[in-house]
Amino acid sequence: MTTATAIVAGHGLALRRSLPLPNPPGRPISLSLSFPARSLQHAARRMIVPSSRPSRRCRSISSESPTAASGTTEEDVDADEEEEEEGEEVDPQAEVRYLDPDADPDSIREWELDFCSRPILDARGKKVWELVVCDATLSLQFTRYFPNTSINSVTLRDALASVADELGVPLPDRVRFFRAQMQTIITRACGELGVKAVPSRRCVSLLLWLEERYETVYSRHPGFQAGTRPLLALDNPFPTTLPENLFGDKWAFVQLPFSSVREEVESLGRRYAFGAGLDLDLLGFELDDTTLVPGVAVESSRAKPLAAWMNGLEICALEVDTGRAILILAAGVSTRYVYAGYQKSPAATQEAEAWEAAKKACGGLHFLAVQENLNSDGCVGFWLLLDLPQPPV
């Protein structure tokens, strides 16, 4: 048994009780690290998603705002907004066309897209389909309903072109989508427009918007069918063997204060060649700065090539399967890899369960860091990850 201290991006993380564990040849040498679950504060998290009135974005009001200076409190403003929202009728059959007037249209280079049926029947008794498009900041929002008789790549291609025309924005460089079953149609439609289609579950804003639309739009539609299961449910396949080019040398469970996670995300573009963040303000995380966010640090003698390969995977989550004593990496839309293993024991199981409990306490927030050495003071790659439930549609 050895004791080590891992440094993630300049922040010292005490890794208590490093256990070298044997793996098959070519696999990473796993490090299972103990940390007390009670050290993680169970701070609440609030998700912010766009309202059914896209012209009003959900934002917090600063105590230094003009309303506060004039004697109006934040509570008064919130109460007024709630009363206004309760008194406003939402037309569930209306389609959304919205571009934030403060946004620079040329800066919106990536869209998130869903093209699928909804739990709504039309006059023919057939399921209605819907195209939903947004960007990661929800500055762009677009929806359109379709009959089930016109679902093909040509329809989608023309609809995507109309998003650009109607909102006055250029076509994006990339479009992310999360349904594997729609890959052929989406890829073909995007290809004809010169847009790269990226299968990825890192469509966080889109997934949360769909959840909100289910409650405020679909369930209030006159054709809504309660209890209808999604036509194209997300796959959760059995994990497969990790490709050799993704092997690391060691890995470890680690922790990082929420304030430091914010710093890493904010500096991601300046400090790292590889990685991905999340818009923590848009997502409305309300964790204390000292709350410890769980993560996994990976050491590799070929850290830069490893990070480069991982950067193209659209990594979305990590999870521990305590029954099989493995760490699973989820990527793309339906890819799951056995990322590493550890020697099963009561102590190791307890540590793995503590890591998963810590992730749940942080609202599903966690991270993956790639380093040249677990004791180094910097990262070659940093990905902020989030567990999300299956979409209701």
Rank of each mutant, 00 (worst) to 15 (best):
D102C: 11
R188W: 04
S51H: 14
D104H: 10
A123L: 08
G71H: 08
L268N: 07
V333T: 15
Y145W: 10
S18W: 14
E84T: 14
D173E: 14
A103K: 10
G341I: 02
D102T: 08
L208H: 14
V169Y: 05
N23V: 15
P20H: 06
Q183T: 14
E319S: 11
P147S: 10
A37I: 08
Q41I: 08
C58N: 13
V195S: 06
P230T: 01
T143R: 04
K304I: 10
L207P: 03
L292H: 00
S200A: 07
Y145G: 06
W383N: 00
L99T: 02
V175M: 11
V261F: 06
E314A: 12
L131Y: 00
L99V: 03
P172K: 03
T216S: 13
S32M: 11
D173C: 11
T143D: 05
L208R: 13
E211M: 10
Q371L: 09
H42C: 06
L193G: 07
P239W: 07
R45G: 05
T322R: 14
V8G: 01
N311W: 03
I48T: 15
P239N: 10
R302C: 09
A43N: 14
A9R: 10
M310F: 04
P147H: 05
A68C: 15
R188Q: 14
H11L: 04
T187I: 07
N152V: 01
P50L: 05
P36I: 07
R27Y: 12
V293E: 05
L13E: 15
F177E: 01
S219E: 09
V169K: 03
Q181P: 06
F238Q: 14
K250F: 13
G332R: 03
A226I: 03
F253K: 04
R157D: 04
A340E: 07
Y272D: 10
C316H: 07
P257H: 05
E82R: 15
A79N: 07
V333C: 11
D80H: 09
I48N: 15
V217N: 09
S334N: 15
K344L: 06
S60N: 15
G378V: 12
A233N: 11
A103P: 06
G168L: 09
P172C: 02
S219D: 05
E88A: 13
A123Y: 08
A347N: 03
F146A: 08
T72M: 12
A340H: 07
P237R: 10
A276E: 09
P119S: 06
S267D: 12
I120Q: 03
A276M: 09
R201W: 04
A252N: 06
V8Y: 02
A307C: 08
